[in-house]
Design a binder for these strands. Sequence first.
DNA 1: CTACTGACTTGTTTCCATTCCT
DNA 2: AGGAATGGAAACAAGTCAGTAG
Length: 591
Amino acid sequence: IFNVRLLYFTFLNHMIGLQIRLQAQKMLLIRWEEERSTDGSKWRFLEHKGPVFAPPYEPLPDKVKFYYDGKLMKLAAPAEEVATFFAKMLDHEYTTKDVFRKNFFKDWRKEMTSEEKSKITDLNKCNFAGMNEYFKAQSEARKQMSKEEKQKIKEDNERILQEYGFCIMDNHKERIGNFRIEPPGLFRGRGDHPKMGMLKRRIRPEDIIINCSKDSKHPKPPPGTKWKEVRHDNKVTWLASWTENIQGSIKYIMLNPSSRIKGEKDWQKYETARRLKKCVDRIRNQYREDWKSKEMRIRQRAVALYFIDKLALRAGNEKEEGETADTVGCCSLRVEHINLYPKLDDQEYVVEFDFLGKDSIRYYNRIPVEKRVFKNLQLFLENKQPGDDLFDRLNTSILNKHLQELMDGLTAKVFRTYNASITLQQQLKELSCSDDSVPAKILSYNRANRAVAILCNHQRAPPKTFEKSMQNLQTKIDEKQKQLSAARKQLKAAKAEHKASHDDKSKKAVEVKRKAVQRIEEQLMKLQVQATDREENKQIALGTSKLNYLDPRISVAWCKKFGIPIEKIYNKTQREKFAWAIDMAEKDFEF
DNA sequence: CTACTGACTTGTTTCCATTCCT
DNA sequence: AGGAATGGAAACAAGTCAGTAG
């Protein structure tokens, strides 16, 4: 069914080549489209310029001093470069952490000359203050640059973007997502990461694998260098890749979310979630039955699935111990992550979750469950230590195999997509009121979005300036209120005046004043809505769910139905990413 | 079944430009 | 004009999940 997608994307993309050639290629394209579903190719033609490398290291001017144990020391370029990474971060909490310091020092020493190595043996005796000040001054100087200089830099960036930021994939010019190679630096893991502070090494052309089509103009490596490899694999979507040295994992250069290949995949994702909608009742009945199974593994599978469905937990793959921060998802929950309360306050069978999830974000929730789930959990906990797996007979692979049998294409994460999107749709239905003003409708939309963000546990730290900005807004509101009462008084006076004189001039004055009151009322309302929205959003991040979990067609349909311009809901990038949905969805779209 | 790899999505943080406010 | 606040984009880390080898 995705073969019809061409219709939706043609308008987006710039055609290249001559009309006749184009015609011929179109025919080929359609034929290829039909083949594609069976052989899994992602493209036929791919041409790009390769990645942009980080600028080479520029040694510090001599006036920048580094002291070891109080004594001035000039470092050779390799060690100096790594030292600057640390010096730049001096204000960051990271540099006070033991693990960070230890890892940094170990990797730094590897870059030193043997002389440096023998002298520098204690990080505590290193004084990076001079370097730190230098970089602060540099960034200050950058801010102070003249308009012309800033303009020049902007133009240079634009030129690089135009040259390297686009590729051609099957007749379409497409934006590349990340065409710049990550510069070297110190690895900053999230949470309690055992590898924080390690040196992320510089990536050279010799590390890069290029992927493009055979019949394309191949990207040229920088003068005097070679690519690691040039391959022509059209079963994958990436343009270039390299192996990163911290975890040994592969990094990719891929297309922007606005591209056909990403948009299509996104669409597909929501179609899978919509198929789940059709059979979710059956699946729910199934797992409720499975709570009674004779087999432990089936009961565990069923309880885990219940959590994934009800709480929108992630699947929870196993991770290699000591390689990453200790975080879990559903299948990897441990005994220590839950508490059971047969009775809590006025509720029965309460499960308390407290664990670190993706990015070491804390998930804390107390939730009453059905008696059968509770009893099962008690059973799973029997004879276990806090560090043992809650679901010892289950992992994500087993779970996903089971899900695959229940519905084609079903995996654990589909539940998150499904529950997020269906929640948005329900909430929008419940909260929107066609009589509301535009700002009030948008508040309703944000509230619906918020319900989803809470479900998915998308938190944020309250912005540092939150209290202050709230206060500012409140002062504005107070002022508006004063303005309003003043305007009302004036209106009243004008009315009285008109009553007395009954002339045209005073009638006009009444109208003018009435308008003024109305305008101020509107402004006040807008401010109040804004304050509510901001307050409710204090600890909640809407972006992630909006971008990754909510079927954009729901939002597009809602906008059409309630006469809200789409720009009020999606900014420019978001509109590009969701172009397929904006084009496709009518006001009666149902997820 | 486990371990491991590869490709791709999802997530937060940081940086930067624009807007807002004085 | 200039500085603070804000929102968006870039950067890049951290997940999911399928496939393969042993």
